[in-house]
Amino acid sequence: MLANYGYKDGSGEYFITIDTEKCNGCGACIEPCPEHCFQIGSDENDPLRDEPVAAVVPGQRQKLKYLCMPCKPAGRAVNKLPCEEACTPGAISHSWYHVLQR
């Protein structure tokens, strides 16, 4: 399942996607995220799945634009986000990057 956590508001689209097929529940994403965006637990969107899976912490889902800003500065080049880098199976992706637009 592609679980898209986040939102779209008047200013834009801010989603973190977790591919639950790829996620192995290892929890490697929790530590490196400075804003504590991830948690591991039973899949709340698939009550019949038994293995644990990563999800974006409910309280953080509505603030992603601001939370992830420090990881996505406009003026400096960033290769990979800490969360993306930590996830070896490649289950995490973001829908937006802060680009320098003037």
């Binding site: 508001d9 008047g10 200013s11 634009k65 800003m69 500065p73 406009a74 003026g75 400096r76 802060h98 003037r102």
Partner: peptide, 21 residues
């Protein structure tokens, strides 16, 4: 907006079109 002494813009962040900010 973050800028240098000579007015060069280093970085900036914007919230627009959403009344919450």
């Amino acid at each position: 907006i973050k800028c240098t002494p000579d007015g060069r813009i280093v970085d900036f962040a914007i919230n627009e079109k959403c009344a919450a900010g």
